[in-house]
């Protein structure tokens, strides 16, 4: 059988060291080894974007990455968005609530993480740029219009 690999991943600022099976995806590692269940899994073959996290600051589908590949990496998940001290929601999270950017909420963590990257790189995106950035995230509930509005609202609040 296969040899487990010692893997060290920093998630939301906390360093975790685990012996993992090589075939374990980063998504399953986060969810079932670290019990960070906010990163959801929608297709496990890299199409839906539900499992999006940031790896070293870049959005990635955690179902398309092995946990062992992320050895040494810094991973940010939806659990890392809230302010640690106060528990306050991140402005992006709050904007999704205020602009009704979610319904069932299952795809939402993926949208939030993708938006986090977008607004970091481009604080004032046009609607087309928002759409381009979110093209890899499927939502079956909202029809996306309210999501675009949420991102726009978040952008304006983050710019202050």
């Amino acid at each position: 059988m296969t040899t487990r690999q010692r893997t060290t991943i920093t998630v939301n600022g906390t360093r975790y060291e685990r012996e993992v099976e090589p075939r374990l995806s980063l998504a399953d590692f986060l969810r079932h080894e670290l019990h960070l269940g906010g990163t959801h899994v929608g297709c496990e073959h890299g199409v839906c974007g539900v499992c999006t996290v940031l790896i070293d600051g870049c959005s990635a589908r955690s179902c398309l990455t092995l946990a062992v590949q992320a050895d040494g990496a810094e991973v940010t998940t939806v659990e890392g968005l809230r302010d640690r001290e106060s528990g306050r929601l991140h402005p992006i999270q709050q904007a999704f609530i205020d602009a009704h950017g979610l319904q069932c909420g299952f795809c939402t963590p993926g949208f939030l993480m993708t938006t986090l990257e977008l607004l970091r790189d481009n604080p004032e995106p046009s609607d087309d740029e928002i759409r381009e950035a979110l093209g890899g995230n499927l939502c079956r509930c909202t029809g996306y219009q309210s999501i675009v509005e949420s991102v726009r609202l978040a952008a304006s609040r983050l710019r202050g």
Binding site: G37, G38, H40, L89, D98
Partner: peptide, 21 residues
């Protein structure tokens, strides 16, 4: 009005079935 369901959903803390063990 904004939805009372949403804070847990955007925080990723809502307990969907695969989050339960």
């Amino acid at each position: 009005v904004t939805r009372i369901e949403d804070p847990g959903l955007v925080a990723g803390s809502t307990q969907f079935i695969d989050n339960l063990a």
